[in-house]
């Protein structure tokens, strides 16, 4: 290759440094959650599970976690349906204004969250809808559609239509073709998109701030309310560490999905 040995070593050191900076804050928070002193002062001293125990026993973080999961599940379900339909429409059909529809689909992630938040709040106020968990789910679903659309759309574009034509030639009707040919081929794309949508909703705070009502608290809201309270530092450390640890699950699942190519018919197409 065209790089000198010295340049390669320099690049490797640089990459290692970047990874170090990327992970230090996450590791440091995990270490703080076990810190004896109830502060984040350097250096951390001693180990204790006291704070973990306190968090497990307390009601606030647990109900916030449940609320976050509930919101994310609903938003993901809506996004899966709408995103998949949109992906089919845009990758299987040519029609006037397709480019504009594509732009409208990506707009909710291209515009800053605060715009989406204030815009939805203005709309709900105009129409006279009181903020609640329902308005929150609608808001989350709106920006989650994009990620499902992107994942499924990319898969459909890679998948050749000839498999579906072959299915039709063999006498299968549209529903059968979808069930036995199309769906198995796009299953992993659906999972990947759904996972991403779930994670996006689970962690969302900006749009949430403007569109939630009725005292409904998600985990990020709980976090925003507590991180600045000096008394809450040890508990906040534990919840933060929990969020970091929980994030390993979707990363692991996503990795498994990418690693294992689809068996059978799909292997030829994918």
């Amino acid at each position: 290759m065209f790089l000198s040995r010295r340049a390669r070593i320099a690049l490797r050191c640089f990459a290692a440094l970047v990874l170090g900076v990327l992970y230090f804050p996450l590791v440091y928070v995990a270490r703080l959650s076990l810190n004896k002193a109830p502060s984040y002062a350097w250096p951390p001293s001693g180990f204790t599970l006291r704070w973990w125990d306190a968090v497990i026993r307390s009601e606030g973080p647990r109900s916030a976690l449940l609320h976050s999961v509930q919101t994310a599940l609903w938003a993901t379900a809506i996004a899966l349906v709408l995103g998949t339909l949109a992906a089919f429409a845009l990758s299987r059909h040519k029609f006037f204004g397709r480019g504009s529809v594509g732009l409208v689909l990506v707009l909710p992630i291209a515009l800053p969250g605060i715009v989406t938040g204030v815009a939805l709040l203005s709309a709900f106020q105009r129409v006279g809808i009181a903020l609640s968990v329902n308005t929150l789910i609608v808001a989350h679903a709106t920006f989650c559609v994009v990620v499902v659309y992107n994942n499924v759309g990319a898969r459909l574009r890679r998948m050749s239509g000839s498999l579906e034509e072959a299915s039709a030639d063999l006498g299968a009707d549209g529903l059968q073709t979808f069930r036995y040919v199309t769906f198995p081929l796009m299953r992993t794309a659906l999972l990947a998109g759904g996972l991403l949508a779930f994670a996006l909703s689970f962690d969302e705070i900006v749009v949430t701030t403007f569109t939630v009502g009725g005292g409904y608290k998600t985990l990020p809201i709980w976090f925003a309310e507590n991180f600045a309270r000096p008394n809450a530092i040890p508990v906040v450390n534990v919840v933060a560490t929990f969020v970091v640890l929980a994030s390993i699950i979707p990363v692991y699942v996503a990795q498994r999905l990418i690693d294992r190519p689809i068996e059978g018919v799909g292997a030829a197409a994918a």
Partner: peptide, 16 residues
Amino acid sequence: MPLWAGYLVKGYAWRA
């Protein structure tokens, strides 16, 4: 992976 670790958690870690 850090994309999935909470947005506020990162801000908080940097505060520390």
